[in-house]
Amino acid sequence: MTPTLVPHHPARDWAEIQERMLVPLYEAVYDRLGVGAGTRVLGLRCGSGLALLMAAARGARVAGADRDHARVELARERLPEGVTVTEEPPEGDTYDVITAFHTTDALLPELAALTRTAQPGATVVLAGWGPPERCSTEAVLRVAARLADRRPALRTDLEGLVAGAGLRPAGSGRVACPFGYADEGSAVRGLLSTGAFDEAVRATELSQVEKEIEEALAPHVRADGTVWMPNVFRYVVARVA
């Protein structure tokens, strides 16, 4: 199979292709928490800002933080004037809801630091992949672990992060977030933009990673050339004690 030769612009590919796949997750969480007019929302690892934009459309006051400079710049372009998006979590402000829709175990230090100063009763939401048997994309993501010569680590211990940050568990939920792409090229670009393949690209070559992603996508390519992968994501709700 010929690898997909496309420009590699991870931040823009995330904004234009991949980020929308998690819209059902964002909506479900906002509905559950009643995010609306007057709610103060902070998005950690906010990416290019789509979740914040959706909260702002509900009337919430929003701010975001992400360590990826390119994504921060895109978020600033798309969010309303007056919304602050920074590369470090803001200090000195209080929030009703703190979200981390793209949670990894590496989030713990900044999460713990932030929640130590958060007001009691504030809600924190962490999200990650659901059960392996309900995530079609898992087999594709295992390509990343194999090429990077490391053990697969696709599951983030959400409850462990809650405990480590000194938060009080307050519930959980699951949301269907299918990944759908116009073609294989878009699927490859979208998946590369997640960051899951960064180590693999450094360990091999981009063209090799693209080729192996395409091979792993083959079972999910439909007759019309589109790519469809049903997935379930999981989130946990916690409170600042």
Rank of each mutant, 00 (worst) to 15 (best):
R168L: 14
W129F: 09
E91R: 12
R234N: 05
T194I: 07
A200S: 12
R146M: 01
A70Y: 08
L79C: 04
A238S: 13
R20S: 14
E138L: 04
V62G: 00
L161W: 03
G43K: 05
A203Q: 02
A37E: 09
T103H: 09
M21N: 03
A15K: 04
S186N: 03
A176Q: 06
T4C: 04
A153C: 04
P120D: 13
E27L: 12
T156D: 04
A65P: 05
I213F: 03
E215F: 03
T117G: 08
A113Q: 15
T123W: 02
E16M: 01
T4A: 11
L107C: 08
R61D: 07
R189M: 10
V232K: 10
R40H: 06
G225D: 06
A11C: 09
D66K: 07
T39K: 11
T39S: 12
L111D: 01
L167P: 04
L154K: 00
A112Y: 09
G36K: 14
V62L: 10
Y235W: 07
A15Q: 08
D183N: 12
P131F: 13
S136Q: 05
T103L: 05
E214K: 03
I17P: 00
T99Y: 01
K211R: 10
A170H: 08
R76E: 14
R151G: 14
